[in-house]
Amino acid sequence: MDIFLQQTVNALALGGTYALLALGLAVVFSIMGLINFAHGELMTIAGYVLMYCGIAGLSFVIAVPLALLASVVAAVLMERIAFRPVRNGSGATMLVTSFAVAMILQVLFQNLISTRSQPVLLPAMLSDSVHIMGMVIGVNKLAAIIATVVMLVFLDWFMKHQKTGIAMRAAAEDFAVARLMGIRANTVIAGAFALSGLLAGVAAVLWVSQRASVDPLMGFMPVLKAFIAAILGGLGSLRGAVAGGFLLGFIEIYLSAFLPPEMQEFREPIGLGIVVLVLLFRPNGLIPSATLKAEKV
């Protein structure tokens, strides 16, 4: 039972990170139909900012906002430079563009920074642990869970009560009509990218604080998982992205904790197999996007 609770905390921490990443992908996808492969590189950028801040001796309290700022700026620039020219292209065109961007950024990191994994200085406090209800929980895990909850609450408030947030929801529903109502396309899209950059930045901080290192391909795997979380939850649906992220986190952590040792090598295929199984019964995801059925015939 103890192990189970302990693993549940781990699953919440990992699932929360996936959820934030998947949300960032979903915010952009719901508005412009772009599956952003380069989302992981936003994470990597935030990771490197943390690393350089550590080297420069800046406190973590300053480093984190800087890292978030960097990934927000990078996301907005990415949209402006790479995605605006293909904004009206097909889904495949945009997806391919984003993978080219991801590839170029990865090579740049490898050349300009290092091909190897670099250590990141973290405050000692993060590697402590606390005792709650008989469980030993790492501060970094706890921080991850709290940060996820704070971000989700913030996002909910932003989407419901902020003008830009409401505009984004309108644009996700029907971009053409939203524009006719006087919503500026550039503002909404830039806003969506900024938001997805922020989410990627938070995810990067959480990711790095569990591992204390950063490498040029750091963002690749978690974002791949976030893609899968996004379709598991329902592509384009924000609530779905959160649900899918958490479910994927739970699947992965429980498998690694409870799968017999001789099966551990097949952990990844089995985990994805479970995802496929869920999708066979719910092809549009756990919480399908509302716009799916809205196509007028």
Binding site: I35, L224, I228, I231, V276
Partner: peptide, 13 residues
């Protein structure tokens, strides 16, 4: 059973 972009991501899986 999957359509469009969801199918693309499934192939990644």
């Amino acid at each position: 059973r999957l359509e469009g972009s969801a199918a693309t991501i499934a192939t990644l899986g």
